[in-house]
Design a protein around this nucleic acid. Structure first.
Lengths: 351, 351
DNA sequence: ATGAAAGCGCTAACAG
DNA sequence: CTGTTAGCGCTTTCAT
């Protein structure tokens, strides 16, 4: 019976019409059955499903989306090179599929700009764009938001039509400082993230916390960055520098885990013992930090929470009337938390 | 003039029909102009383009793909968690766009299986599936290949309808051993990759090279893996073990860079000096290896070459008649190369 | 060079 | 419960 259908001979994949013919019903009915919506008897339902299975039928997603009014697709623009983005993408898949939405990815890389990534998403007519740590200007993002709802993750920004969800960066650094002070540290330096997203907030959190602990005189921010190299360079400079006024730091809080790894590595190579001589704290709780032989004390980003919040914002925009007055989007800030591992300890008494 | 068009009032984006109306021509003509194919006078061409620009028109990719006969879309299934996959994705974007093909990504993560990732790709009707280091069985991949052309990267496999492109893993390890022997090393151990893709070939390459150099008695493969943790564990075991018959190794070749980092870190923490006391070589030339403070000697994977070859295979399948007799696909093996950095040196004479 | 008409595979109104 | 009809936005004959 199946051998008579033309798609068996060619390379063509079975369509809804093929299933309808084979099952002896109309296309509309097959559509109803496939989508699992009410409107078909149990008998037909079973038969159609059986035929569809036998034929290996799978609905054509493009046709489906083209026809559908509302667009249940979340476009995610992320930087392929950033481990943190990869983690977020994983969490976004989970969060989106939990509420029955599809995710389509668009990567930025060397040679493929953020602009390009977003354009691709727009051309696929996804219903909302979720941009991870976008580098575009506020004006550009607002321009984008005029065409499609935009949600940004990990970028502090107030812009018309753009929702933002991010980690409470300042609070994270405050927790780190609190932890170290609790252990008895005073000479705590912050290797910062320069102009990286969130770096300003983290610097502020560090300064505030130090001040609150009466350690204003020990405040010491050294220029770092968001890579291991940055952390290594900053630490090398610190070791070379005598800093008579501040003395040798007994603890270092890095901008992120990558930076902290550079710090760690440089300390180790110079013969310092961590945490006996120097304590080190990172930020992100990336896979790197969790590795047994690194076992870095760090401030964990609420990745799953960020993803869920972003998806929530997206749904909000998608299910709400788009002709509503465009206004500055919501700004959701989620708290990070401290994870104590083995790179922090009380300062050595004799130091 | 534009204010009269309904899409200005609503959130709807302009369609080809809108452009046609505004320009006073037929939709077919606009289509011709937009695609840049011959069949329109210069005058209309200019006018249509002007109108399209003013309206901010962008063709709907879904509709376009739906209508088009041939499918110029490459579906890429990759593991979001693997840095090597991210690098490949970047290269694939470049390679595909160079020949005018689109790439659609589908990630596998914790909670999103490879199977799922591929199904999504199929539902979007991409013309070919490029699977990075797939874990599916040969039977499963052949089943997939019956529905759509399949190209695998970084997986040794001979299967009907499946093209494979991969690095010459054995040759890579041979180069590593040659380099070390050239420096004067004899006690060279290989921290292997266990069951990871390519691990068997690399082990073989190591054994062959050692044998060829008359170092059969020094052959020493210790169980590792593809993570930093694996490398660290293997090295810790090695340091604890006295290995009276083989003596202390003066050089270690790891399965990959991540593993090598674990090796490096453990050596450092145990007070060993690299490369003065022990030389270390990785595999991949990942971003990690290139970091200035790591500066790992490694075997570079030909990432761009792999990506280009994969895209070539895909084009081949796409432009060739699909009814051709299904046969075992091509198997392309690309040579890696040695990159000497600062973790290798001649063995210390007194050792 | 231009336009009319058909249809890709699907869903959504509306009839029966 | 089931089928018919009418598109989604685009490309593609085929006329003109």
């Amino acid at each position: 019976v199946l051998a008579t259908l033309n798609f068996v001979t060619g390379a063509r994949r079975p369509t809804l019409a093929d299933v309808a013919t084979a099952a002896g019903v109309s296309r509309a009915l097959v559509s109803i059955v496939i989508r699992g919506v009410p409107g078909a008897s149990e008998a037909t339902r079973a038969r159609v499903i059986a035929v569809a299975d036998e034929l290996g039928y799978r609905p054509d997603q493009r046709a489906r989306l083209l026809r559908q009014r509302e667009n249940r697709v979340l476009g995610v623009a992320f930087d392929v090179r950033r481990a943190f983005h990869s983690d977020l993408v994983g969490a976004l898949y989970t969060a989106a599929e939990a509420v029955g939405y599809d995710v389509v990815l668009s990567g930025v890389t060397t040679g493929r700009s953020e602009q390009r990534a977003v354009t691709t998403l727009l051309d696929e007519r996804c219903g909302v764009v979720i941009a991870l740590g976008p580098t575009a200007s506020r004006a550009e993002l607002e321009g984008l938001a005029r065409r499609v709802p935009v949600v940004t993750i990990a970028r502090r920004l107030r812009a018309v039509g753009v929702d933002t969800v991010r980690t409470a960066d300042a609070a994270g650094l405050r927790d780190a400082v609190d932890h170290l002070v609790g252990l008895g540290h005073q000479r705590i330096v912050h290797v910062d993230g320069g102009k990286a997203p969130g770096a300003a907030d983290r610097r502020r959190g560090y300064r505030d916390a130090m001040t609150r602990h009466g350690l204003r005189d020990f405040i010491d921010v050294v220029g770092g960055g968001d890579t291991e190299e940055d952390g290594a360079r900053a630490t090398a400079g610190l070791l070379a520098d005598l800093r008579p006024s501040l003395g040798r730091p007994t603890a270092m809080v890095a901008f992120n885990d990558a930076c902290a790894l550079g710090v760690l590595d440089t300390l180790l190579r110079s013969g310092r013992n961590v945490p006996a001589q120097v304590s080190v704290i990172g930020f992100d709780d990336s896979r790197l930090a969790r590795l047994a032989h690194i076992d870095l004390t760090t401030i964990a980003q609420p990745i799953d929470g960020l993803a869920r919040a972003a998806v929530d914002c997206a749904l909000q925009r998608l299910t709400t009337d788009p002709v509503a007055a465009p206004t500055v989007g919501s700004d959701i800030e989620l708290p990070p938390w401290l994870i104590v591992r083995s790179t922090t300890a009380a300062p050595s008494t004799g130091a």
